[in-house]
Design a binder for these strands. Sequence first.
DNA 1: GCGCAAACCTGCGTGCACGCAAAAATGTGC
DNA 2: GCACATTTTTGCGTGCACGCAGGTTTGCGC
Lengths: 210, 210
Amino acid sequence: MRERKKQATREALRTAALRLALKHGPDNVRVDDIAEAAGVSPRTYNNYFSSREQAIVAAVTAQRASQVAAAVLARPAEVGLADAVIDAVVGQYADQGEHAPEALLMIAASPALRACYVDTVTTIEGPLAEAITERCPDVDRLTAQVLAAGLGAAAKVALRQWLQSADVAPSMPGFVVPSGSLPDLVRAALTPFAPALDAAAVGPPAADPR
Amino acid sequence: MRERKKQATREALRTAALRLALKHGPDNVRVDDIAEAAGVSPRTYNNYFSSREQAIVAAVTAQRASQVAAAVLARPAEVGLADAVIDAVVGQYADQGEHAPEALLMIAASPALRACYVDTVTTIEGPLAEAITERCPDVDRLTAQVLAAGLGAAAKVALRQWLQSADVAPSMPGFVVPSGSLPDLVRAALTPFAPALDAAAVGPPAADPR
DNA sequence: GCGCAAACCTGCGTGCACGCAAAAATGTGC
DNA sequence: GCACATTTTTGCGTGCACGCAGGTTTGCGC
């Protein structure tokens, strides 16, 4: 019951942060404003989010981590690890939720928000590693962690590039329209790791014969 | 000639930061102290380093980025990309410089410093990507970036684990002795990516026949 | 209901990162 | 050597993150 309230506060902070940021622009929102809008003290804000941008971004990326893990395990057992994992991650960026378009535009326009948004990919690495070991119990812990981290890093590269493709053009402020399909870019970024994933899934303890 | 002076200031700040941190403990050093010891204003400090920990850590990791890139290109052309790259990265953690032992101990003991130290691995990713494309001009830019990022992520996992292996044991403060060989750990962390590296080096544009 | 322990929220104080604009230092053409 | 354009340094002000030490709420056993 206590947990209920905590999640509620989290949610309130997230949505308040996003709403205010969209309304007044990301630089014209102070932490105090968000806290007040959510009905908590400014100090409490930092018990939930350790930076100002984090709350705004969290409104968009809230349950990505758990979704990815679930998606990996949801793939039929026949498909290889590489396909399962890559499809799962790509799927996360296929459907950006409801009000995401405007939010993403704002995030793309602000360097600080961009960086924070890209960093949230890190949160999927833990669950992803667990999902990998669950699907392939033979790969050892370190390898699973490393593979998950590698995939996360690849996704970050893709995200960064997609978000950046905006401000290369000397466009007027607000005119940031990331070009190309994000899912395609993510898939392209993850594909180089397919050999590593399949190799790990097949013969983890096999010392290479030399 | 101007560049000279900047590098000198950087160096002064780095060494001053490390010296003071070792002397008084990492938490008892303010940026004002470091700045004063280096003979610049506190504000200038933040023109060179964007966080307090960064200067301390930089004293240990200063030219790692360029060294890795050089090491990759130094390997004879016959050895595969995977071996070349992995050896180069592992080599970076084989010989910790002169006064590193005590510095590393301090870094391992402070969570903030640990995080910052791990983050410096990011700086090698750019040069590493360049080195990869230089060695294998056929791999496209995105793939090279992704591979470099993946390797960086793997190295971070290894580093984090090594540094953390200390405070698992309920040891008394200061008694943090990372166990096991760091180079071995790093190699183990990077090895899962070997198949991906070799696959990229061999047939990058080959669409998989289906 | 009642008291108690744990978890949580809050105010305060400190140190820090960084934008901004003026001042100082460093090169450049003449 | 002298005026000038650039780059660096610096002081100042603001907002932010977080440790700490109470006060407040929440849930549990009785």
